[in-house]
Design a protein around this nucleic acid. Structure first.
Lengths: 137, 137
DNA sequence: ATGATAGTTGAGTAGATGCTCAACTGTCAA
DNA sequence: TTGACAGTTGAGCATCTACTCAACTATCAT
């Protein structure tokens, strides 16, 4: 649950007030009932941050291409650089991020490092979104 | 697998070469077969960009909260400011983005502007990801 | 050991982005 | 008409980020 909603706030602070959670604006037209209902079932701030983080990792065309490529085959850094047409360094930087986010896992074999998706959930989210983009408007 | 080796580019450009698709790096260990297979079914560059754009819109905790709130009820700018504890200006800026991306639609009624999600697809993607974050590690 | 090469990493940089602030528009009530 | 107010917008900013470059490590072939 969220913090309780502070009713009407009849005496409002200035318009540009710093907005501490609920007393954001001095409007008198807030739909109190609706706002409270939404606040009750609203995701936690942390959840919102976590969800945003997952999306953030997927919010770059290079990483989208990496994820898609890895959904098709296990690939090494060099393969990915070749496929994406970017430097190995750039790939490596992105892989670090993807590994930190547990989106991909790495396995070292000799000199090579092979990457694969760790999570089928991510694959599904990605595929849903690709479908959405392709069929959708 | 990994018949590998050598394939192309015996005379390689410098390590930091600009990378034109397949001849990206001078490595000799690119798995040519695998790379070509992936390249064949790889999403278009535009698709990757579109997918990334959808994720980008959802890659901010404020917008995540907005989308989630709107998945629970139709709300006006002021309600959202109240719920999120941010200024109306900040909400409005984000709503502009969300409208441009066709994530939400706006309906003006008197002085108020009511927002709702335009797309159930987005709702599903969001809900999948929220589940993923909550159950997943 | 020596050289070649796959991969990583840190610094630096150009561009993107989310917010604030202030000025603005449009609508309503008196 | 006048004032109040919901909402929008542009400028400015502090921050973030995806890349390049160069230096580094680790592994393999000779």
């Amino acid at each position: 649950m969220k913090t309780a909603l502070k009713a009407a706030a009849p005496t409002s602070t200035s318009r540009a007030a710093k907005a501490s959670a609920v007393e954001a604006c001095d409007t008198q037209y807030i739909d109190q009932e609706r706002v409270e209902a939404v606040l009750c079932s609203l995701v936690e701030r942390d959840d919102a941050q976590d969800v945003a983080n997952v999306f953030r990792v997927l919010a770059d065309p290079t990483r989208v291409a990496i994820v898609h490529a890895l959904s098709l085959a296990e690939l090494c850094n060099c393969d990915l650089a070749s496929i994406l047409g970017i430097t190995e360094s750039a790939v490596s930087h992105q892989m670090r991020e993807l590994r930190l986010m547990k989106i991909v896992s790495a396995e070292k074999r000799g000199r090579m490092v092979y990457y694969r998706l760790t999570d089928t959930h991510i694959r599904h989210i990605f595929e849903d979104t690709l479908r959405h983009v392709r069929e959708g408007a």
